[in-house]
Design a protein around this nucleic acid. Structure first.
Lengths: 214, 214
DNA sequence: TTTGCACTGTTATAAATTTCACAGCATCCA
DNA sequence: TGGATGCTGTGAAATTTATAACAGTGCAAA
């Protein structure tokens, strides 16, 4: 003990980067590489090598001098930190384009994190399977979430259904919500909430493009 | 002069929040509200009222004591800062689920930021229109981008086409890229790049859910 | 075997961002 | 009319995040 708990204090930004490092490392591994230098990781992620080394220091991983970091070891270590041992089950509420994009994009990528159910109100979708994910009626939300031990919900419904969807998820005992809707939601303190609005990001890019023009 | 240029030094985080404030303000306006307090905005965005006031201070906007901020004025001011006067034209490369989701989600929301073209390699899609956006062949990328004065590109192609897509965009003279692919890209310094990976965000949510469990 | 090089690991420093603390003021209420 | 209240605006402090600077080390070439 003592070591494990320090992971609780990892900076949020480091957590995000660890996930990104792993993604990059998996790619390198599939290309046959076994070791990697901090500056190589840095290049891929558009950050500095110091930052990579600092992040790895925070998780207590040491590389080999002049050989770099062992990719497989590092992947495993990152997994032991950010993954949940028993795995985490995820639901997507809203099987429109965005919901289906996420499913496509996601299935089979991480074995400790699995989308195990989709929900929609459209009768044409209910009962069907999308990339291996069964679509249920939102009326069954609570039942399915409890039965399948789903702890994370991704909201991809139309904006006007956002609030009620979030409420239903909370009522069903969800622990984390990722809201891709443009409408912010309100949840109790014990539910972890992350909101992402694509318009904001696009407006930010547009702003800096405008600025670079003067 | 002197006032305008300070907007160049606005913190990145403030820029993002301004966009979010505007989104929330537009909603309030459509509900018939004319004024709003800093703590109301803060509540919606899950931040503190101090932060809202500080952001507004940075853009030089003053509210009325005990009445709050004039919503319309604030919307206009934010627009004058983050929007480009002539408008910015955007292209989406990759008309799969994610690309179409973005188009649906976006069209008609902001008049100073418009998606004016989509691109794909699938012959079934080329020539069609999706929510009013014409889909072109990627072979025409450079031609269309130059002709329509497109300065921002959103990449939503499959991962393995990411690198070449980014290269083509840069070659076509794009100024800003928003990459929704899990594969990081590399661009010259004068192209503003923003990358967003949905898996990272989901893994982050999962991490904090796991942590809250102990 | 020595010297230089190219890495890692870490402490110290700086920059960015958020929060605290409180002054000021218009309105309400007694 | 004289608080009390409930907001705004902002300098100062705290926190978070990133960068700089450099010591240590093992390999490689001479």
């Amino acid at each position: 003990m003592g070591k494990q708990q320090t992971f609780k204090n990892l900076p949020h930004k480091t957590i995000e980067r660890l996930s990104q490092y792993r993604r990059a490392l998996l790619l390198c591994l599939s290309n046959g590489k076994t070791h990697i230098f901090s500056h190589e990781i840095a290049k891929i992620q558009h950050i500095t090598s110091v930052q990579v080394r600092r992040d790895l220091m925070l998780i207590g991983y040491s590389g080999t001098l002049r050989k770099g970091y062992n990719i497989q070891e590092l992947i495993d270590l990152i997994g032991s930190i950010i993954d949940s041992e028993e795995g985490i089950n995820v639901a997507i509420i809203g099987m429109g384009n965005l919901g289906r994009a996420l499913i496509n994009y996601f299935t089979g990528k991480r074995h400790k994190l699995e989308i195990v159910a989709g929900f929609d109100t459209n009768p044409d979708k209910i009962g069907n399977t999308f990339s291996g994910v069964q679509c249920y009626s939102v009326t069954e939300l609570e039942k399915v979430i409890r039965k399948k031990h789903i702890t994370v919900g991704i909201i991809t419904v139309p904006a006007e259904q956002t609030t009620e969807t979030a409420r239903a998820l909370v009522k069903a005992g969800i622990k984390g919500i990722l809201n891709y809707t443009p409408k912010p939601v309100d949840v109790p303190d014990d539910v972890y909430l992350e909101e992402y609005d694509m318009i904001t990001t696009l407006e930010k890019v547009a702003f800096f493009v405008k600025m670079s023009d003067e």
